[in-house]
Design a protein around this nucleic acid. Structure first.
Lengths: 208, 208
DNA sequence: ATCACAACTTTACAGTGTAAAGATGGGGTC
DNA sequence: GACCCCATCTTTACACTGTAAAGTTGTGAT
């Protein structure tokens, strides 16, 4: 577990962990391969034995981020579902989880949706991780539409829902919108209010 | 107007124009000061007589982008308003203009909302330009709410509308959503459909 | 005619990603 | 147990980045 000499043992995981720490501490622009290598106690180019290039390392970070995001969304929705008797798929919970992750892991979120990581098509695990995340929301939207007998397209509704929470996340992170300008107590309240402005979300707000 | 020798004349505008061209041709990562300088026929550091640093140049580009965006939104909404008799503020037109700009000027749009340009607070003209753009949408949303007698908060509704179109724009640009997955003919159709899922937009869809 | 000063060039430096080639030592084979 | 292969790691080097510092140039004001 401690540092080895020439053959490190599992340098790959070590590098990912170092990168994760540096990313959280110094943001995307501060994440350089030399810093990662130094933090892992290894030479600057040792990385290339385990990753094709920087973008591949970032893709791994991003994929982990998507898994974390998926987990947070699911757990947040689960909590609220239990509290409210699980009458309906908890879209608001998923949205809250999404925004909470984005604002609590700004740099990682930026990386996940930035262009530094290269084309996700080149990294199947990345694409799968983000697909799972999107599926969580798409399924909930589809279930709610069906439940309320809506004729809206599930695909379009899911796209709209995702776009809304994603837009909220990025604009909040960029300091372009905030609870303050809407005279709300917290950004979470803003998210809940904004989600209520989606027709299908509002429709299911009152179970009766 | 042609190239001068030592004292260029208006190197500042020249640099901005060069940067604009390189940005459009090679994207944000391809936009280096040396390329800009070379394209303007000037030494690598001549730039620093007119800009504090790279971020200040990018801020000017971004501000111009916001003005262009504002213009496109207004013109698009105007076109549709005339066509439809201008019964209501054309939210869908503003949204279409927004997404059209984003997808038609990917690199510039990325720059406008990216972090390469530094804190907008340091560049008043940037902040003003983006505020004008946001105001266009906020005003339209407020007018529509009032017209439909809604009790919803105009600030929250405007935030939701902006978030939706912004989310759509970025996710489309990142290749994460597209008309294809929703079985629609074009991304513009997708935008229109998605906007219709906002409660206040739908309410005003039928003027009767 | 001179001078001051803004606009420009040259040079230099620290930092980046990464290609190429050399060093090292652990695992499999005899 | 001796051997060697080869993945793993180090060293060196290169092109590129933004930008600081100091030198040059020419214009407009005195």
């Amino acid at each position: 577990m401690a540092k080895k000499q020439y053959h490190h043992g599992n340098l790959r995981d070590s590098l990912v962990a170092s990168a994760h720490g540096i990313l959280a501490a110094e943001g995307v622009p501060g994440l350089s391969l030399r810093k990662v290598a130094a933090h892992a106690g290894v030479s600057a180019t040792a990385l290339y034995s385990h990753f094709k290039d920087k973008r591949e390392l970032l893709a791994v970070l991003a994929a982990q981020g998507f898994e974390q995001l998926t987990g947070l969304m699911a757990s947040e929705a689960g909590k609220r579902a239990i509290r409210d008797g699980a009458a309906a798929p908890d879209l608001a919970g998923l949205a809250l989880g999404y925004v909470r992750f984005a604002t609590g892991n700004k740099a990682l979120f930026q990386l996940m949706f930035g262009r530094e990581t290269g084309n996700p098509k080149d990294y199947p695990y990345l694409q799968e991780a983000s697909a799972r995340c999107y599926g969580l929301m798409a399924d909930a939207v589809a279930a709610r539409l069906e439940q309320s007998g809506s004729a809206d397209s599930p695909a379009v509704a899911a796209t709209a829902a995702w776009s809304l929470v994603h837009g909220l996340s990025t604009l909040i992170n960029d300091g372009r919108i905030s609870a303050g300008t809407c005279e709300l107590a917290s950004n979470e309240a803003l998210v809940l209010q904004a989600c209520r402005m989606l027709t299908f979300a509002e429709a299911a707000q009152e179970p009766g």
